[in-house]
Write a protein that binds this DNA or RNA. Structure first.
Lengths: 225, 225
DNA sequence: TCAGCGCCTGAGAGGTGCCTGAGCGTCAGT
DNA sequence: ACTGACGCTCAGGCACCTCTCAGGCGCTGA
């Protein structure tokens, strides 16, 4: 079963596209605004996404860019009403895979969508590095200096968050929100505890100190070399 | 060095495109007719091909189709003077990866070409392999070390999904969505049970452990050698 | 120098996720 | 109807993970 997500706020157009795709044998979900589309797309279980640029709540380009930044590489086809050439270039630069300007014919949409799905989500070099530390969120691998490091789910999530902060300081509240979830009601001390676990695994064995405590502000991950 | 082949018979246009691409740092070869373009493209050492449809000697669509039939999956961008919508669909169906109708702007060509190259040539093997494990989705065959392995439909679907993940971790929810279908309402424990079945069939008899459990994240299939 | 606060850490209880064997219903072939 | 293969559910058990707690350390400002 091929699953497609259609993110489009114009009810009529969304319904038309969805019906057409369903008639072609696709399994279609429809979302009507940016944040909701982003949320669904994040689940990562779609084979392709049709994304409008003018969306309530969040611009299509931002949805696209956000997904790519989070390591979601589901093929994305951007729909836009503008047809200036630079828009097209811009769309592709945000990490979209294809582009179609309204008004478009359903036949073209279908052909392009099929081409995207046939091609599939390309395996990208998703490995994040900070100094000698390498993190592969897809494969859930972590290594430093050719040495594999075993991390638990929480440890990995925390480290990934710090890595994506790219050297900036992450406050404890921020970490709690993103790694533990906004509904976490427990002791904020967990963060300190888990930072401790991480230091024991990714710093201490290598004689480095890359997770720095910024007293009163939070934590930051710095390169070791 | 990124190598691009431009197959275009109009001298002026070919020169303009080639010069522009060279200025952008690409290594460009130009071919002026169909058979010659096909011949060069067959060498397979290009990262992308820009292909006109109206060519002396051989139509661009035939060049494209022939290459695909021969197993050459270099990304191809088709250029055409016609702009009827069905032409576009047709171009993509011959196995092209993208499509641009003349007149086009160089900025767009560049953006699209970059997108194609970034994406790379999608590997389309009929037989998937992970280490010594071979999987033929078409024939529904599975073997390891010359030994045929009998799998049930579900087991095969699950294994195929894991293989296609290419070493990345597949979460249980994701597996349920793709292998059992999004409307599956039963016990998520089935995944664990079927992973157990697979391990008994493809790992245990060969003394290897290729299906790894990533606690809190999912499962991943790794090569055995 | 001292008080106070923020951070670190070791120990441990409790919980969750995962594995497995047993067993039931269904369907196709005999 | 019998048999076997298949798909799935269920419950027990284990290992590991997650989080709490409390004592102690060290930085900071008065």
């Amino acid at each position: 079963m091929v699953r497609v997500l259609v993110v489009e706020d114009e009810e009529l157009l969304a319904a038309a596209v969805a019906d057409g795709l369903i008639a072609e044998g696709f399994d279609v979900d429809v979302s009507h605004d940016g944040p909701d589309g982003l949320w669904r797309a994040r689940e990562g279980s779609y084979d392709a996404i049709v994304l409008d640029v003018l969306l309530p709540g969040m611009h299509g380009y931002r949805v696209c860019r956000t997904l790519r930044d989070e390591g979601v590489w589901t093929p994305i086809l951007i729909l836009t009403a503008k047809d200036g050439e630079y828009d097209e270039a811009e769309a592709l630069d945000t990490g979209a895979d294809d582009f179609l300007s309204k008004p478009f014919s359903f036949v073209v949409l279908l052909a392009r969508l099929r081409a995207l799905i046939r091609r599939g989500a390309p395996p990208r070099p998703t490995v994040l590095t900070v100094g000698s530390l390498e993190l592969d969120p897809g494969a859930r691998h972590c290594r430093r200096h050719e040495t594999d490091i075993r991390l638990t789910a929480r440890e990995f999530a925390l480290l990934e968050y710090l890595v994506r902060k790219d050297g900036n300081v992450a406050s404890k509240a921020e970490i709690l929100d993103h790694v533990w979830g906004i509904d976490f009601a427990g002791d904020p001390n967990v963060v300190e505890v888990y930072v401790g676990y991480l230091r024991k695994k990714i710093d201490a064995p290598f004689g480095v100190e890359t997770i720095k405590t910024v007293r009163g502000a939070g934590y930051q991950l710095l390169p070791d070399e």
